[in-house]
Simulated scan of single mutants.
Amino acid sequence: MPQYFFRISHGRFAGASDQGSEFESREAAWAEMTKVSGNLLGSIARSLKQDAEWQMELIDESKKPVFRIRLIAESLG
């Protein structure tokens, strides 16, 4: 099974997990990513500053992004 890694970016911070996870399919990888990001988003949204972005990516063994979830706070006026 292919191995995947989570990478989170928030402002100037960016980091990827050192330990990979194996999933039976892309759908299983997506399901886990949405579960993990869902658990984190409440606390992230409460501390998100204006004009900031938070994102989580699932990257493959070659460090190529497979999926990305982004939370963007935009000041429109």
Rank of each mutant, 00 (worst) to 15 (best):
M33Y: 01
E24G: 15
M1G: 14
S17G: 13
R26P: 05
G42W: 02
D60K: 10
E32R: 11
G15Q: 07
A31W: 00
R26D: 12
I69H: 06
E22R: 13
E27D: 13
F13H: 10
N39P: 02
I72G: 02
S9E: 07
S75L: 13
L76F: 04
F5W: 09
H10E: 06
G11I: 06
T34S: 05
L48Y: 00
E53I: 12
W30A: 11
K63Y: 04
G20V: 07
M56I: 13
W30G: 01
G77V: 06
E27H: 08
I44N: 00
R68G: 07
S25P: 02
I59Q: 05
Q55Y: 09
E32N: 14
G11P: 02
A45N: 07
S43M: 11
S9I: 09
A31Q: 12
E53K: 10
A52G: 08
Q50R: 12
D60W: 10
M1H: 10
W54V: 04
A16N: 02
H10I: 07
R70A: 14
E24Y: 03
E22T: 15
R7T: 12
S62L: 13
W30D: 01
A29G: 05
Q55I: 04
T34L: 10
E61Q: 11
G11C: 03
Q50K: 14
M56Q: 04
A52P: 00
L76E: 04
G77T: 07
R7Y: 03
I44E: 00
K64A: 11
S62Q: 15
R46W: 01
S43K: 14
S25G: 07
Q3V: 15
R26E: 10
M56D: 00
S21A: 15
Q55V: 03
S47A: 12
A45C: 09
I44C: 01
K64N: 11
P65Q: 07
S17N: 10
K64V: 09
Q19C: 07
S62K: 15
S43D: 08
E27F: 08
L76H: 08
W54R: 01
A29P: 01
L76G: 03
S25K: 05
F5M: 06
N39R: 15
I72K: 14
K49F: 01
D60Q: 09
D18N: 13
P2M: 08
M1D: 07
G38C: 04
S17H: 05
E27Q: 12
D51C: 06
I8G: 00
E53L: 10
F67S: 03
E32D: 15
I44F: 02
L41G: 01
R68K: 15
E57P: 06
F5I: 08
I59N: 02
F13A: 14
F23Q: 01
K64C: 06
E27N: 11
G20C: 08
